[in-house]
Nucleic acid binder design. Structure first.
Lengths: 351, 351
DNA sequence: TTGAAAGCGCTAACAT
DNA sequence: ATGTTAGCGCTTTCAA
């Protein structure tokens, strides 16, 4: 590991000059020629600053803490972490992830990260739950990823659920189907109501009347299977939009029992909440993926911009500037998430 | 943030004394009375050492790097990370995870962690693949989690696949079934052959002849479905051990088509490779979980013990000391993994 | 325009 | 048994 001192010696200048140059603070303070020589020798020696030493001095670590509540256990977490990871990496930040499986634990982990001097925190629940943000994080720069603050005190990146519901339904409409069912979820999730709203919007736009008989909310097990079975027997839908692929499975089971072929007799679109591997369902099930990666990416990007001395003004945060596109626009990639700024709270009540 | 200096002043001693005491190097060097006073004031002031400053001096950071190849995208990763996280946390280490989606990227990320001064690395692939360990990691203390080194140069924690296969099959045998099928995987995974071996062992022990007609390996999609369907039609198994729950799904589909009820007409045990949420399958499918958490936990524990000045000798590494239990022993929790030491290579050829 | 020097919080060799 | 001191590698006044 080459140090600054070595670079200085080799370049025949003092360490302070090297520091100045290598941090880009040399304009009008160091002769251009010398500055160049410093840069050259630094490159020649493959000099890399020691982040620890720098942090000790500046008390800024370029480390980010990713705190998740039980989220690491769940399949979804990976994508969020990965996205955050990538954004951090691009900006020269290091992401350290900790999982908290309880309030006490969270305080501890946060304290540890605090001692290591992280510059800010990302916080993530599972499936965008509304939750009280732990006090131990509240005093830091903080951005939520796939989580909603009950008091809306922090910026958050969440899936654009209405649009997800709209686009999923639109796919079935585009396939020429008319008896489109919605299998929702009885659990109190932010997504449930919003996806249903998207479903209604898409139907309305297509001139298909909304019929409550085609909609049901289920939880799991036999009861879920029976409910879906009844809907199938009575309504014979030709398309189904499922809250997630867990629900999609009940549809599969019912279809198999009735001798219906998925993709021919009935088409299914599910939101990829619990990633059943594509190798299993692949050709039959159309999946709308939740933008986990993107949420992580944008959340980290937002956090980093907050930490910067000069906040980036030219960033086009997802969906804050772009108006919702018209319903008949093509919906190819299906990756939507939204930045919720703290001040916008009154405009967007959440479920 | 209280510093050592403040503690020293308040206790009326010098910083070196404080350092000595607080690092437990005071036996026979500092008067017991003074040592106690130091400890008291430290507690009173809620003093926490600054890890950065310490690291700058000692060049040991108590940070671990968790490097995974594309693993963060996959559902399995979470558990491994979580386990590693917890072990690290318990030992006062910080885990920083990076995902590498390519060789170049890996070099970069490793270099970053290197500059931050991590003490060692954990490396994880997905589904215990045999792979060449990147050179950029090879020069560090390194432990593999759910990964196998082609040249067996590093300690690794991997699932005990034979036992997993044995136990899964045993469950079906215990349920009184005799026509037990194995739905394997054609992909070249370490697990495939070993789980099949476990299946054979369990059958043999129960006095049930192994019949190749009851065994098939499938990949995915229609062909997989057809193959499993044929096996069902021709053999009418009363129990099925599935390589993973992805394969289990084909069994479900076939059973539904034949009007068979899972759990009554045919029992299924699947290995939980791709965690389909339990809320979907819960009562019908018996799942053998892969010990992701445990692998992470033990891998980190192993790494930390390697880093310690005095390696822990009293640790009972999973399965290295314990002999494989007899086949008729109860198999409750089904959590098996193994530590492979570098030297044991010749004893345990893989695949 | 450059360099010397102080100091971030800690550890450890050396004095006392 | 305790204190003094010299750094770890870097940033940042302040002098020159």
């Amino acid at each position: 590991m080459t140090t600054m001192k070595e670079v200085a010696q080799r370049a025949g200048v003092s360490v302070s000059t090297v520091s100045l140059v290598l941090n880009g603070r040399d304009s009008g303070r160091v002769k251009t020629e010398i500055a160049q020589r410093v840069r050259d020798t630094a490159r020649a020696l493959d000099y890399r600053p020691n982040p620890l030493a720098r942090s000790l001095r500046t008390s800024r670590t370029r480390m980010l803490g990713f705190v998740s509540m039980e989220v690491a256990t769940t399949p979804y977490a990976g994508g969020i972490i990965l996205g955050a990871q990538e954004a951090a990496s691009e900006a020269g930040y290091l992401l350290t992830t900790v999982n908290a499986d309880g309030k006490v634990n969270l305080e501890q982990e946060a304290a540890t990260l605090h001692r290591y001097g992280v510059d800010g925190f990302l916080f993530s629940t599972m499936s965008n739950r509304v939750s009280d943000i732990p006090e131990s994080l509240a005093s830091y720069p903080l951005v939520l990823a796939d989580a909603t603050d009950a008091h809306n005190r922090f910026p958050a990146i969440v899936p654009d659920e209405v649009r997800i519901g709209r686009d999923a339904t639109q796919r079935l409409i585009d396939a020429g189907l008319t008896r489109i069912a919605y299998i929702g979820c009885t659990a109190p999730l932010v997504a449930q109501g919003l996806r249903l709203e998207g479903y209604r919007q898409a139907l309305e736009h297509a001139g298909i009347p909304y019929r409550s008989e085609l909609v049901c909310d289920v939880l799991y097990n036999d009861e879920a299977l029976r409910t879906v079975g009844r809907l199938f027997d009575e309504q014979r839908p030709d398309g189904v939009f499922c809250f997630n692929d867990s629900r999609a499975w009940y549809v599969y089971e019912c279809a198999a029992r009735l001798g219906l072929t998925i993709g021919e007799d009935v088409s299914v679109v599910g939101v990829d909440n619990h990633p059943v591997v594509s190798e299993t369902f692949s050709p039959q099930l159309t999946t709308v993926e939740l933008p986990h990666y993107e949420m992580g990416y944008w959340a980290a990007t937002k956090l980093i911009s907050m930490l910067a001395d000069s906040p980036a003004e030219d960033v086009r945060w997802p969906a804050t500037t772009a108006p919702m596109p018209p319903l008949d626009a093509p919906t190819p990639a299906m990756i939507h998430c939204t930045l919720i700024e703290r001040d916008s709270v009154r405009d967007t009540p959440m479920d």
